[in-house]
């Protein structure tokens, strides 16, 4: 009986142990064979890509600290990033992915944000990052371009 109990405990411990972050991890549907579009190209001519499925690649500079429901990729152009947003729980990007390289695929989307929503978003962002909200950061209505992610590969 003791042996059975010991085996069960061992199996449970093995099953519950979280593996180390593997060399390459696929999220959602992963990525297809389409050619990578430079993030700077997307941001330079956004209206040409809105509604289209695009594949991008870049350094992960931020991850949603609470739910892992978005990550931000650095552009090939300095000071520029793009957000890969996924529905809550469909894919969960881990916080430790920050600083790794990701290839992500999804639909390039334009969002027109009214000023009151901009304030709420910035407030939420500050709250998530644990920093004080700066009302001066709200400069009026904004247009946000982001990728509604269908899959990604992080390495």
């Amino acid at each position: 009986m003791r042996r059975v109990a010991a085996s069960l405990v061992t199996i449970a411990a093995l099953a519950a142990s979280t593996p180390a972050f593997p060399a390459e991890t696929k999220y959602g549907a992963g990525v297809g064979k389409a050619q990578v579009v430079k993030i700077s190209e997307l941001m330079a001519r956004p209206d040409a890509y809105v509604g289209k499925t695009v594949k991008v690649e870049g350094l992960i500079t931020a991850v949603c600290p609470r739910r892992g429901c978005w990550m931000e990729l650095a552009s090939d152009k300095e000071f520029q990033t793009i957000q890969i947003k996924v529905d809550d729980g469909v894919m969960v990007f881990p916080l430790e992915a920050k600083g790794k390289v990701a290839t992500a695929e999804g639909v390039f989307t334009r969002i027109d944000v009214p000023v009151e929503r901009v304030e709420a978003m910035k407030r939420h962002e500050a709250e998530e990052k644990g920093v004080p909200f700066d009302p001066k950061s709200v400069k009026g209505p904004e247009v946000i371009y982001r990728i509604q992610g269908t899959g990604a590969v992080i390495r």
């Binding site: 350094l59 500079t61 650095a74 000071f79 990033t81 430790e96 920050k98 600083g99």
Partner: peptide
């Protein structure tokens, strides 16, 4: 030195190490 880094603005730099930043 970090594994990778990124500048969000000219004066703001982010350094990425394994699991921390």
């Amino acid at each position: 030195l970090p594994r990778s880094s990124f500048r969000r603005a000219p004066e703001r730099i982010e350094l990425y190490y394994d699991g921390w930043s």
